[in-house]
Structures are given as structure tokens and as C-alpha cells.
Design a protein around this nucleic acid. Structure first.
Lengths: 349, 349
DNA sequence: GTTAGCACTCTTTACCCTCGAGTGCTAATC
DNA sequence: GATTAGCACTCGAGGGTAAAGAGTGCTAAC
């Protein structure tokens, strides 16, 4: 069912109010708004419809309405207005990004920090692998009865080794077969491509026959890739969460912080996200503990090549329009910075 | 005034009880203990004395007594009994440290994580600079009217540059003088030595004459040293704080986490601490926001040379005996690990 | 189709009361 | 003289009740 013009207007007003106040919004409050010249009763009727359609919920009988994830999704897709940043905001961003010396990592760190300050949310940034290295071949070498060495070689000549303890016996034949299959599947892929789940899925169907072997090897393979990728995760404004009424409950704040403390998992989740500005709202997030968070990420580029990620995480009740505008401006700015600065001297080991 | 045997016994009992329960402990509770065969009234008299002497406090009139920082200090110095670790605990530690591949950084990370798990506190670990590099000379080169380049050269041949914007005009003469003074002061010092405050203090008195210059240069110098030092700070069990009754107050938990989020400052604080097992209790911590935390740190060694730090932070009400024993065992274990493993293959860029 | 009116629901807040734990002091006891 | 029993007093935690306030849903009127 298409929503009528009036329903959309009411929904938009509810979202706007709720995002601002964090209080369920009632019919009386809405009818007072000049752009909504209806009586509370009319609005109540519409709200009841919207609730039936799944756009609103009701904390309890005598409370106002609260937008659902579905409502936020509609809002982000269609209703939301992007906010033009004020001159001061633009200045703050530009200044903070360029005040720094020309160290790449520091610039990213500052970007995350300015992002969290302006949005009052928790921000993070993922630095890119400096050169997106491509896998060349994968080898498994027998060491003793229950140990093999996993060797990964990249086009750029980087070699990584890892000893793997096998829980099942193996034959050299099997080992070679697995090496070949892995090489066949991963050769030519970049490390970050190899790290995204979908490739693994395809791959695992290929080698059902020797899955016992693969189960020992694959986790180690993935971990070694992570080490090779060597991205850094910066996080800023972690304690902003305490200013958000939804998290005034200790146990909620706790699980939020607990989630963000798991850096490896978070990193993987961020790497897997598509490029461009991506908004995932509440239950759209695959992760259980993110069910009442929204995540907005964007990718930024260095030398035109695609790579790093930056974004914020906060309650589903967030200023989507404002935050996406800020992130857009910020990533544009980052992209320009890393384009002009032709060969910035990064510190080297 | 020396405390009588009996006062010490009572104080010890109060600390023991309070550490366990987090509740102010009253005279009746104490008199029930078999080792304290006195009536509540007697104990009350002793407690009043101990309060007058500053070892106990009183949340309110009708509450039991709570040990003060001074009491904890006495306890740590004299009363506390080190706890022999159980076999299981030893096993857990050993297993977790050695289960890992032989990557150095991972081992440290695991050490921090096992420490936080066993103590139920927040733990951290500082990895050492791989080789303790010694400063060779410092140079300041004029670039334009308001910019100079700071150059730091170490014995091992590492060179770091940093552009510094000057807020006051300078002459080449002054610049050379400053370079020489800095070189004179820092030559032969290790980077971590140079980073400790006391050296800076000495130094700044030397060059009062051109302090305008130094004020621009020094912060950049310190920051560059930090980059050169390149230690990593690992932190684990941040959310353990939520299990501690003292921090069931949101604003307290917040400031605790806020403090630990400032990684640079924390790192500097840890570097500055003396070696060996160091306990600082509550107000003994210089930092305002640490006034009701205790910090226990220990240093561990690689190849016999001194270097990294590991420790825990928690409320002043902590099991000092147990925690110090655990940290002691853990660092012993680390020291042995890094001694035996003659030339462990660390991942190289 | 819209609105006014009204009964009803539910949460929040304040307030009061009681209970229990613990103290400090004084007087009696060992 | 040190120790203990007794007692009045204080303070906080917990529970229950009542009133206030916000908002709904439904019905009937416009």
C-alpha cells in the first residue's frame, strides 16, 4: 500500500520530533505544528494506520508513537533532506584535516575525531592497505604428522608463513590438492577481496571432499590474510554513547562498548561493507548486538584507488540527513587531500 | 603513632571484608569473626581510633567503616599476604601464553587478555620498542620565514623529520643554538628516557633565553619521539568496570572509560612508571581522574634487556595480594618466554 | 471525512512509613 | 583500666499509595 501524502507528512514529523527529543511523540504535539493543520483526533487515526503498517510502535498504551526501523528506512530513502553544512562546520573540518602534518595515518585519525565531535556519535576509520596487494599462490607444506605450514605469496613478493596444527590426519596428495584449489580460487584476488565472506562460501562448496582438512586450514588462512592486510582501526568518541538517553541504562551502554571493543570483528564487518555511503538501520544489521544501532559508513580513496572506510555508529534514532551530509563532505575532503598530495612522505620503518 | 597489634588485625579484617563485599563493614560483623574475639563495642572503640588516625572513613553516621587510601597503602606495604596461584590458574596462564604462534605482539596481547580475565579488571600491556634506540643528534633547518624542519637522528641510523611552524620570528643563530642545546641534552639518551618528563624539566631551564623558540619546537619534538618509539598499547576487559559496584553510576563509568580512551596520555604515564611491580593507590595517582583507581604495573623483559609494561587498573578496592601475585607470575612467565625463544620469527613488513 | 468529548490506561514522581544496620556514649563489669 | 552491655539516635533502603500528566481509542456529532 502506498502511503498517502498526509501519512508521509505525519511520519516525517514524527521522525523529526522523535530524533530531536527522544520522547515518544503524541497526537497533540503534532497537531500544534503549523505544517500539520489537523486535529489531534485525525492525526491519531492516521497514526493508528501507520502503526498497523509497521511504521510506528507504541511503548505502551498511553504513550506517544515511536518510529520503527521500517520508518527510518523509508525516511532515509525518500523523506530525508540532506543538510547543507554551515560555513563554520566546513571550516572546522577543513582546518582539522589540514592542520596536521602530512602523515597519512594522523590525518585519518583526525578525520575520525572531527567526525565524532560534530555528530556527537562514536566514529571509526579504517586505514587502507597501502597498496592493494594481489595474491599469487598459496602452498601447504608438510612438517610432521600433525603440522603443516601455510605459505601465502603475493604479487608484490610478500611472503607469509603460518604453522597449522591439523586435527585430522592428512596425506601429501590431499595437501597438494587443497593448495591448488586454494590458489585457483584466490589467485588474482586482492587480500581484502579474499577476506570478504562470499568468496569463502563459493570456495567451500568446491572441496567438500576434504572439508576436514580445509576446516583446520581456513581459519588460519583468514587470520594470516588479516595480518597481511594490516589495516588500522581508529575509534573516537566512544563515550559519546553516554550522552544518548537510549543508553542511560548501564547494561545497554555496556553491551555497546563491549561490541566496539571487539576490534577484529568490527574491522572485518567494516571491510565487508559496500563502497559509497551505506546506511544500515537497526535490524538490518546482521549482528544481534547491533539490532538497535544504525551504522553509516563511507569509503574514501587514495590516489583514485578505492580503499579506506570511515563512519559512525549510534542509536537508530539519529540525524540521518545531517550525519550523511557530514560524512559526504568529509570523505570528499579526504579524497581531495590524498589526490593533491602527490607523494606525501609517510613514515617508514 | 604505631598501631597496636589489635588495631592492625582489625584493620586487616575490615579491608579483607570490604574488598570482598564492597559494603561498609560494621562492628557486629567483625566481632563474629573467630580471629577477632572482641565484642562489638571494643571494636567500635578501636575503629573510632583508626578513623581518627585516617585509616577509615564513614560514608554516613549509621554505616560501617570503609578503608581509606592510607589503609590500603599500609595493607600493601605490610599486611597483605601474597596468594600462591592455584595449579589451574597457572595452567591457564601458561596455556594462553604459549598456545599462540610465536608472534611477539600476539603473545603480549594474550597476556593482557588473560590478565583481565583472571583478575576481572581492566588490563593493559605496552609492547617495548624492539631495540632501545639512542639519540645521536638533533638539528633544526630553516625552510622559510615561519617554518623550520626538525630532524632527529638516532644511533641506529633512523631519521625522522617534522615541519614546525614557528609563532615567533627566529634567526639562524638561535636555531643553531637550540639545535646544539637539544643535542647536548639528549645525545646518548634512549628515546623512552627522552620522553620522561624529568629530562624535559632539566632541559627547559637551560634555554630560558630563547624559550619562545623552544615552545614551538618542544611539543613537536616530543610527538616525533613518540612516533619513533612506536610502542603499542593493548587494552583488555574495558567493560569489566561495569561489574564493579563502585562504577554502577553512569557518570563514574563514563569518566573511567573516557580516561582509558586517551591512549597517548595513558601510554606516556605507563612509560614513566618505575620498573618492577609498582602499586599506586587512589590519591597517590597524580592524575585527577584516577583519584579513586588503583594501578598495578610490572615491567617485563625481552632478551634480558628491560622494556615492556603490563598491568591492571581498577577501583582502590581491589584484591591487591591476589592481583600482584598474578602479575608477578605472569611477568616471570613472559620473561622466560622471551628468553628461551632465542630468535623468534617476528613478522616483518 | 473530520473533529470534539470522554473514559480509560499507563508511567512517573513524590511522599510517607517502616525496617534494619550501625554508631556513640554511658554505665556496669571483669 | 580495659572491656562489654545497653540504649538512644541517625541514616539509607525499600515498599506502598496517591496524584498528576500524557496519550490513546472509541463514539457521536459536525
Amino acid at each position: 500500500m502506498e502511503l498517502s501524502e498526509r501519512k508521509l507528512k505525519i511520519l516525517q514529523a514524527i521522525i523529526g520530533d522523535y530524533v530531536r527529543t527522544a520522547e515518544p511523540v503524541g497526537s497533540r504535539t503534532l497537531s500544534k505544528k503549523p505544517e500539520l493543520g489537523y486535529s489531534p483526533a485525525t492525526i491519531r487515526n492516521e497514526m493508528a494506520d501507520l502503526e498497523e503498517l509497521g511504521y510506528l510502535t507504541h511503548p505502551h498504551t498511553s504513550a506517544g508513537r515511536v518510529p520503527s526501523d521500517k520508518a527510518y528506512r523509508l525516511y532515509v530513502n525518500a523523506l530525508m533532506e540532506k543538510k547543507e553544512l554551515s560555513k563554520e562546520e566546513k571550516n572546522i573540518i577543513a582546518e582539522r584535516l589540514h592542520s596536521t602534518t602530512d602523515e597519512f595515518e594522523k590525518t585519518i585519525e583526525h578525520a575520525a575525531s572531527v567526525l565524532s565531535e560534530i555528530t556527537n556519535l562514536t566514529s571509526f576509520a579504517l586505514t587502507p592497505k597501502k597498496n592493494e596487494d594481489v595474491l599469487k599462490f598459496i602452498n601447504l607444506l608438510p612438517v610432521d604428522e600433525c603440522t603443516v605450514v601455510l605459505m601465502i605469496v603475493s604479487e608484490s613478493g610478500k611472503v607469509s608463513n603460518k604453522a597449522v596444527h591439523m586435527s585430522v590426519p592428512y596425506t601429501e596428495e590431499n595437501l597438494q590438492l587443497l593448495s591448488k584449489t586454494m590458489t585457483y580460487n584466490y589467485k588474482g584476488k586482492t587480500i581484502s577481496q579474499a577476506l570478504t565472506n562470499n568468496i569463502i562460501a563459493n570456495f567451500e562448496t568446491d572441496i567438500v571432499a576434504m572439508s576436514g582438512l580445509a576446516e583446520d586450514v581456513m581459519p588460519n588462512f583468514m587470520r594470516t590474510l588479516e595480518d597481511m592486510l594490516n589495516v588500522n582501526l581508529y575509534m573516537e568518541g566512544l563515550t559519546n554513547i553516554f550522552d544518548i538517553p537510549e543508553y542511560s541504562d548501564l547494561s545497554k551502554a555496556r553491551s555497546f562498548i563491549e561490541m566496539l571493543s571487539q576490534k577484529e570483528e568490527l574491522t572485518k564487518k567494516l571491510i565487508e561493507r559496500d563502497d559509497g555511503i551505506i546506511v544500515t538501520i537497526g535490524e538490518e544489521n546482521s549482528d544481534d548486538i547491533m539490532q538497535d544501532c544504525s551504522l553509516i559508513t563511507a569509503s574514501y580513496h587514495v590516489d583514485g584507488k578505492l580503499v579506506g572506510k570511515i563512519g559512525v555508529i549510534g542509536p537508530t534514532r539519529m540525524k540521518y540527513g545531517e550525519v550523511t551530509s557530514i560524512i559526504e563532505y568529509l570523505t570528499d575532503n579526504l579524497n581531495n587531500t590524498f589526490k593533491l598530495e602527490s607523494g606525501g612522505n609517510k613514515e617508514n620503518e
